[in-house]
Structures are given as C-alpha cells and as structure tokens.
Write a protein that binds this DNA or RNA. Sequence first.
DNA 1: CCTACCGATCGGTAGG
DNA 2: CCTACCGATCGGTAGG
Lengths: 224, 224
Amino acid sequence: MVTSAAPVSGLPPARRGRPRKSVEQRDESERRADLVRGAARLFRTQGYAATSTRDIAQAAGMQSGSPFYYFESKSALLEAVMQGGMAEAARRQAAALRALGPRPGAQARLRVLIRQHFEVLVGPDSDFIPVMLYEWRSLTPEQRQRIGTQKDAYEAVWMPVLGSLRRAGVLKARPEVARLFIFGALNWSAQWFKPDGALSLDALTEQAMRLFVRETPQRAQKPT
Amino acid sequence: MVTSAAPVSGLPPARRGRPRKSVEQRDESERRADLVRGAARLFRTQGYAATSTRDIAQAAGMQSGSPFYYFESKSALLEAVMQGGMAEAARRQAAALRALGPRPGAQARLRVLIRQHFEVLVGPDSDFIPVMLYEWRSLTPEQRQRIGTQKDAYEAVWMPVLGSLRRAGVLKARPEVARLFIFGALNWSAQWFKPDGALSLDALTEQAMRLFVRETPQRAQKPT
DNA sequence: CCTACCGATCGGTAGG
DNA sequence: CCTACCGATCGGTAGG
C-alpha cells in the first residue's frame, strides 16, 4: 500500500495546482515508470508469459526481488502497462481532435483518428498499446473489466464519426462492423510495420482512407 | 526419428494410389493428430508459453512425458500446429476458387477468398491459423522461415485479385497495402467474433466487401 | 507409450 | 531497494 505523504507540521499555505511531490516520491514514481516502460518493451517483444520478473528487474537495473517492492505481482505490472498506455492514447486522441479546430468534417476527423492510432501503435514509445492488444488473455477477469472500460471509451469516440460518414454515403458498411474491421486493419500494422521502411505514417493514413472511405460524391458532375 | 514401415518380405503386388498404412502407423499418426489438435486449442486459448506440455499430454489422455515420444520438443509441436493449419487453409482456398467455375470476376474471387479466410479464422476447427497469427514470435528463426514460405504462398493468391480490382477502379488503395489492411481487418475477427452472435460469416463477408470495394461504376448514369 | 526422475527457472517473500 | 531463500512448475530424458 502506498500512503500519501501529507505534510506533518501545520497546514501548508494555500497553493494553486497539484501539490509538490517530495524528492523521494518523485524518485519512487520514476523508478516505477522505469519498470513499466521496460516491462512494456519485454512484454511486446517476448510476450507476457515468456518474460520473467528477473528480466524486467534487470532491464531497470534492479535485483531480482526488487520489482515486488513497487508492484505486488507480475500481473499488476501487466495491468499498469495497459492502463498507462490507454490513458496516454486517450489523451492524445482528444488532443488531436481538439487541434482540428471548430466544425471539422467527418472525413477530417476520421483521418486524424487513424493517424493518431497509427502513432500509438507503431510510432515512438509504442509498446504499451500493442501489449494491450496482444496480451488481453493474460489479464484476470477483474483486470479485463477495468482496462475494458478505458478501451471502450477510446473506441466509442470513433462511432459518431463513422455514423456521420455512413449517413453521407461515403461509408458503405454498418458503422459497428466497420469499426471492428478498421481497428483490425490498423492494429495489425503493429505486426508488420517497419519504421525505416518505405511507408510513412502519413502515406499509410492516406491509403487507409482510400480503402475505407469513398470520395464525396460530386454535386455537379462533368460528363465524360 | 520416425522410420517408414516398408514391408520386409518380398515386393507387394502393384497397387494404385497411396500405399496402405499399417494399423500401428495409423494409430500412431492419429495419436499425433490428437496431440496437435489439443495443442492448437490450448495454444490459442492460453498462449504458447503459458501452456505446459503436461497440459497438452492431459488433453490427449497421456502421461506427462509421452508427448516427447511423438515430438522432439514443445517447439516442434507448435510448428506442427502452424504447418498443419497452413496446409489445410491453402487446400481449402484452392478448392473454393476452383468451385467458382470458369472465368470468375475479380469481385467474385475476392468474396470467396474473404469468406474462406473467415472460415479458417473463426469457423469450426479454427484454432490452427489463429495460433499461427498470434504466436509467430514463439517460433525459432528456422521455423519462421519454413512456415513463412507457406504463409507467403497463401497470401500471394490474393495479389492478382487485388490488382485486377485496382485496375477496374473499384479498389482505391495500393494492392500491397490493401492486402495488409484487409488481412488485418479479417484476422482481427479471431479476437472478437462470437459464433453464436448476430453476425453470420456470410453477413460479415458482405460487410467486408462493402467496406473495401466500390460498386462497379455504371456505364450509363441516370442524372440525379 | 508409462514411470521416475533431473536440473533449471519461476513468482514471490522475510528480514533487513 | 538488496540478500537469501522457498515451494512449485517446467521441458525434457533414461530405461523399460
């Protein structure tokens, strides 16, 4: 149990924003973050079951028993990887949509969602979400429910966009099924994408848009 | 090493077709098949690393050491699962295309390829290919190369179909990228498809076709 | 195929 | 955080 380090003597002066963390607390939470980062990488490359807590300790420069000072079990570390990854993904998703400015079109919103999703799948520091995608079965039922809530919220953002495209006639599949297919298509890129390959994330986004979405039908069509 | 049981005494009379297998050989290859089938199921549901050879032995009704009479290692069992799955998938893919009859259109061919792929992903007896898709990293480099050859051949069948659709103007992404996205979309269904759910494989195939392929452009277009 | 077994490794903990 | 350790489990094998 981590207890919060409230100051013992008197009340602190009123302060804006989050309370300052003590040095020990910052160090401790950074060592925690080191463990989560290292675990994410190992879980992604070797799989959860094939990664030992000793591997994780070594990656963080610790002795074999030390990860258990920060996490009560290997399983809790897995959940921390996924929970952190989803929180970050949701944050970036919201920021990307916000950056679109007022009244963006549905196509622009979908493009941004796709582009941002590629980013968390195969961009820099992209171990967390793939671990969530490919180690779901390694979670306990309780963990699955907790992470599932975050995952559902992330996916729900796509639905109004897909519904709008459907009504505009440029998406021909049912939105719920389209969402599953589109997520599959994108998620799979974690398996084959090579950052130093010929395809940039922009190019990939463009190809995905062309595959899934039809051009907006022209009002006035020039005769051939 | 399994030695082939050639008859010791004299030459057998000339026979058509494959040589008869002795009873022992049939029994032995069926026990082998039992192990592969059980391993496929366990690898799919729990993952390779999280499945013990004792689990596999038990599923086949054997004692803990007995799988090693049939397979030299746990790893060889994994390869057998994937190799058998790919061989069967390729056989069914070829049969499905053959059943289309002479000069089928590209759309008809794609539909059949998608439908057949769904079948091996989520249809009955569908543990083998998902294991291949999700346990690739558990293979040794040598195994990866061997299974990779089968996988490449299976995927190559899709390329002329996608190329043809592209030339017809009903597929707007580059065929090689489209293949990756489409495989991803379909493969992902292994994660969410429920056989007793609302969606049949036919309905799913239809939705996939609508998502990926545009209607054939009309020659004579009625004015709006 | 079974029995009996081996050496290695694993997640986790007590005590400091 | 480290040291030292435990019980359980694992892949695999010898000998029949």
